[in-house]
């Protein structure tokens, strides 16, 4: 999706996309953890999108997490989805 922003990292064995809000505490924790683990990822802060794009992205996120809650982490385009900030699960799946 073109509104995704890329954050480079050395660990790029998986494609990692996260749906976040710029104001959300758990989302910030998630970004910090991925950065600390040097995992490459792309993210979108949904609250900062213009309305029309917001709806589209919410639908897209909803395919992976029907509750459309934040943060949602999608591994390899949907092979694995981690809803919320779950440290141990993230390490398990991504490292």
């Amino acid at each position: 999706m073109n509104c995704m922003k890329n954050v480079p990292g050395k660990n790029c064995g998986h494609h990692v996309a996260i749906y976040t809000l710029s104001t959300c505490g758990w989302c910030k924790k998630l970004k910090r953890l991925l950065k600390a683990l040097d995992i490459e990822y792309e993210y979108v802060d949904v609250d900062l999108l213009p309305k029309s794009e917001k709806e589209k992205i919410m639908k897209e996120a909803g395919k992976h997490n029907p509750r459309e809650s934040f943060p949602t982490l999608v591994v390899d385009h949907g092979k694995e989805v981690i809803v919320g900030f779950k440290k141990d699960r993230i390490r398990e799946v991504l490292l």
């Binding site: 809000l21 104001t23 505490g25 809650s69």
Partner: peptide, 30 residues
């Protein structure tokens, strides 16, 4: 919140939302 970093982030988020919408909407929800 006993996690100081998380607490600061949430208060910042509330403040942003208050400015953006005119009321302190939940920082972790759309």
């Amino acid at each position: 919140c006993p996690d100081k970093e998380l607490l600061d982030d949430l208060i910042d988020g509330l403040s942003t939302n208050e400015e953006r919408y005119g009321y302190g909407s939940c920082p972790c929800r759309v």
